Amino acid sequence: MASKSGPRRFELVRHRDVSGVSGTGVVAEGVEWSDGTVALRWGGHYPTTTVWQDGIGALLSVHGHNGATTIHWLDD
Rank of each mutant, 00 (worst) to 15 (best):
S19D: 01
V62E: 07
W73R: 05
V51T: 15
Y46W: 14
V26N: 02
A58Y: 07
A28G: 05
R9K: 14
K4R: 12
G6I: 08
D17M: 08
S3A: 12
S5Q: 12
V27E: 01
T70W: 05
D35K: 09
V18T: 10
W73M: 11
T24G: 04
H72I: 01
D54W: 03
G43N: 07
D76E: 15
A68Y: 11
G20V: 09
S5R: 11
T49H: 01
G44V: 11
R14E: 03
V13H: 12
D35E: 06
T70A: 14
G67Y: 12
A39H: 13
W33D: 05
W42Q: 09
G55A: 03
S34E: 15
H15Q: 11
D75I: 05
V38R: 06
A2P: 14
G25Y: 10
T70G: 02
S34Q: 13
A39D: 15
H72W: 11
T50L: 11
W73T: 03
W52I: 01
T50Q: 15
T49M: 04
T69D: 01
A28W: 11
H15E: 06
S61K: 14
H72E: 13
W33M: 04
P47C: 04
G57N: 13
G44I: 10
A68S: 15
N66C: 03
N66Y: 14
W33Q: 09
R9N: 13
I56E: 08
K4M: 10
G25D: 04
G43Q: 12
G44M: 12
V51L: 14
A68N: 14
S3H: 10
R9Q: 10
I56W: 04
I71T: 07
T48P: 00
R14Q: 13
G36M: 06
G36D: 06
W42L: 10
V62K: 12
T37C: 09
N66T: 02
L12D: 00
G20T: 06
P7D: 02
D54P: 00
R8V: 04
G20A: 07
D35R: 11
G6S: 09
G55E: 01
L60H: 09
H72L: 12
V18S: 04
V27G: 04
G25L: 06
S34A: 15
P7L: 05
T70K: 15
L12A: 06
R16I: 03
H63N: 09
R16F: 14
G57E: 15
G25T: 03
R16M: 02
W52L: 01
G20M: 09
G43K: 13
E32L: 11
L12G: 02
G57A: 13
H45R: 15
R8K: 15
T37A: 13
V62R: 10
D75W: 13
R41P: 01
V38E: 08
S22P: 00
L40S: 08
D75G: 03
G55V: 02
T24A: 04
